[in-house]
């Protein structure tokens, strides 16, 4: 499937401020997806400094020269996807898998999550992970008003409500409590229901059988060809597409617009 994505983010600060942002806004090519074209535009134009981080994400550092009030970042491009039933397949990354067992503030487990993880334990890793996926989807209701970007897995699990970020965090916490390496994935999802959930997140866990496999507990399924992977990390904070700091200025407003559509060009090329 050919998917066209436009992801724009606008920050506005009260009074001029220097802004610096680390962008993880470039999807990798791999077994499940091939990037046909992609570009990230940052204020001031030019080419931002780039490097590949420990997870293999391409990071671009955008820093304003001098104070600005508006920062607009646009990532845009076309990605071809295939359905691999969630299997990520080989790709470059330096990270030792066991690092994905580490505790982070957002993914720390408590007795409740450990008990939940334990209740999902099956004979093999893959079945265990599918049990977590199914149970979690049933247990934690999708609710956009219950949590914030700072909500921990523990808090979200206790409230039994949350959004995709919370589902992913709880999934990761439960998997790690069973000594299964797990990590956070940001990306895009082609939906029938408009753009509100198009900017998406889910979890990936390491299986003996298939390597890294994606699990989207918010939707109760493994990623399909309608999913595009963007960046990975230990939790939502580390995998964030944009992580920024404003030096000076005051209260900031943020507007994010994401459009994910099946591209017409592919139908034409296939026709």
């Amino acid at each position: 499937m050919r998917i066209a994505i436009t992801h724009s983010t606008t920050y506005r600060s009260e009074g001029a401020a220097r802004a610096i942002q680390a962008l993880r806004l470039t999807p990798p090519s791999g077994q499940s997806q091939t990037v046909v074209s992609w570009q990230v535009r940052v204020p001031g134009g030019g080419t931002p400094m780039r490097y590949t981080d420990a997870f293999g994400n391409l990071v671009e550092l955008a820093a304003s020269n001098g104070p600005v009030t508006d920062v607009r970042i646009v990532a845009e491009g076309v990605v071809d996807t295939v359905d691999t039933a969630g299997v990520v397949g080989p790709g470059w990354e330096a990270m030792a898998p066991d690092v994905c067992l580490r505790r982070t503030k957002l993914t720390e487990s408590d007795d409740a999550i450990r008990a939940f993880g334990e209740s999902c334990r099956r004979d093999d890793t893959l079945s265990t992970l599918h049990a977590i996926l199914d149970e979690l989807h049933e247990l934690v209701a999708y609710d956009t008003s219950a949590t914030t970007s700072d909500t921990t897995a523990k808090a979200a699990f206790a409230s039994r409500r949350g959004v995709c970020q919370d589902h992913a965090h709880i999934f990761i916490a439960a998997a790690r409590s069973l000594s299964i390496p797990a990590r956070y994935v940001t990306g895009y999802m082609l939906t029938d229901g408009g753009e509100s959930v198009a900017h998406h997140a889910w979890a990936e866990a390491l299986t003996v059988e298939l390597g890294w496999v994606g699990f989207d507990a918010a939707n109760g399924q493994c990623p399909t060809e309608r999913y595009v992977r963007l960046a990975i990390g230990l939790d939502a904070l580390e995998a964030a597409p944009i992580r920024g700091i404003r030096l000076g200025g005051a209260a900031e407003s943020l507007h994010v617009g994401v459009s994910v559509q099946e591209s017409q060009s592919q139908s034409q090329s296939q026709a």
């Binding site: 590949t52 420990a54 066991d98 690092v99 067992l101 580490r102």
Partner: peptide, 23 residues
Amino acid sequence: VRAGLIPSAMVNGNSAFLPQMMG
């Protein structure tokens, strides 16, 4: 770690280990 001379958790789970430095 692969050689089994030091436990993986002693390294990878250690708070003094900085995952961002890998690679």
